[in-house]
Design a binder for these strands. Structure first.
Lengths: 243, 243
DNA sequence: CCTATCTGTGTATTCCATATACTGTTTAGA
DNA sequence: TCTAAACAGTATATGGAATACACAGATAGG
């Protein structure tokens, strides 16, 4: 029981991230910090996946006991919320020379690179929208860019979510389809698929559209294809608004 | 060790779904089936979330012991793969009167309704693309629709993935933002945000773009907005192809 | 200086996925 | 018809996870 008044507060760990530290400091100084713990957890997740970042593993990495972490985080899911913010890092600054569309493309590519570097981020299921400084920083930059496109606030918000959603999904699917197991997947399907029942998928399989093209840089052509699709749509809307 | 020859096979549970049953039936008849187990698990997940669908809980629901399930599934993640297929159900048949664009809209809306009915589906992290009959059925219908748009196979595949990704993300965000906790989230942000550092997010907050509009039907306007954006892009591409 | 307050520890609980060995059943083949 | 192989479901055990709770020592405000 921390604050019995109104429990609509942010979790303690998140408040710490925003520098909100209640001054009543009596006992010993903390030996760790919310950020340092999250950083250790990120390191583990980067190396061995989200599952490996258990409370015990993180604590061990820092040389403390498992339970010590609970002085900083109410629960593991709070830790993960901060991990995500930590992994995101500060938002990229847009290149002022470029058009809003170009800037939004850059934003999306940076987002994609970040997710590709920390794929486990996609495994974390948050119960609420982001509340960490870094993630809100990304959001802020995105809104700034779209603001200049002339879209109404509502539309800008929706558009950014669409772009972010696209990026997340693309990276996720990329991990699923383009992995080394992709050839395996195609083979598995072939062994089981009835071309009469699922003609379109079968045809797609034969067309080679699903075949491995690894060795491609990231973000690659597929990514740009979909992104352009989206931005076409947004631009069209913005032009309509401008008239 | 099941088949030591080539272990690029589908997991036993998935093969069972496709009716591939190796005939050597000697012992007693199975008292359950891959589908019935998955159905029970879906029921639990629908009611109490994915976490509640533990092997023990599912087995208990069916009146068997935990370990009995391992006769049907090699691992829990296999179970979840089948759960997703089970929850998806058969793909919707497109309305032949509508244009391909209209049919694709319908497809996306059906997808959204399905996900909203089984939100836990979004929590399942699959290591590979779908391999179940129902999900491939959805895929097939989607490809059929896009085939009629005149897009090349590669483009059709990408486009469908983009649409599906959009739907998934929209539902996910919908659960996060539009939940009853949304007002809470806005309040939390207000308590912590510095309008000088994050001007665009702050402005967005004040503009009311994030305020609760629950009681809205699903899929709602937001959904249609983004979907139209996407389809505009796809249609443009298809027109370019048609020329 | 002393005591409330805070940090980190030790221990225990509960839940989970899953390995392994076992019991009993069915049926193919002799 | 007999019998042994193959199979269904069970019992038991292991190791790992999150986290509750009570405590030991440190620190600083009064």
């Amino acid at each position: 029981m921390r604050s019995s008044e109104q429990d609509n507060q942010l979790p303690q760990a998140l408040r710490a991230l925003w520098g909100q530290t209640d001054p009543g400091r009596r006992g010993p100084k903390p030996g760790m910090s919310v950020r340092s713990i999250a950083a250790a957890a990120v390191e583990i997740a980067d190396k061995h996946g989200l599952e490996a970042a258990s409370m015990a593993a993180v604590a061990k990495q820092l040389g403390f006991t498992t339970m010590s972490l609970y002085r900083y985080f109410d629960s593991k899911s709070d830790l993960q919320a901060v991990m995500i913010d930590e992994a995101a890092g500060p938002a990229p600054t847009p290149n002022r020379r470029r058009s809003w569309r170009g800037q939004l493309e850059d934003w999306a590519r940076a987002d994609a690179r970040h997710l590709a570097a920390h794929p486990w981020v996609l495994d974390v299921r948050l119960g609420s929208p982001p509340t960490g400084p870094n993630l809100l920083g990304w959001m802020d930059i995105g809104f700034q860019i779209l603001h200049r496109s002339g879209l109404a606030p509502q539309e800008a918000a929706s558009s950014l979510l669409v772009v972010d959603g696209y990026v997340r999904n693309h990276v996720l699917l990329g991990l699923q389809y383009a992995s080394a197991a992709s050839g395996v997947w195609v083979a598995q399907l072939r062994s089981v698929l009835d071309p009469d029942e699922l003609p379109a998928v079968s045809a797609m399989l034969e067309s080679g559209a699903f075949d491995d093209d690894d060795g491609a840089e990231f973000p690659g052509d597929e990514f740009e294809f979909g992104l352009a699709l989206l931005l076409d749509g947004i631009e069209q809307l913005a032009n309509r608004r401008a008239k």
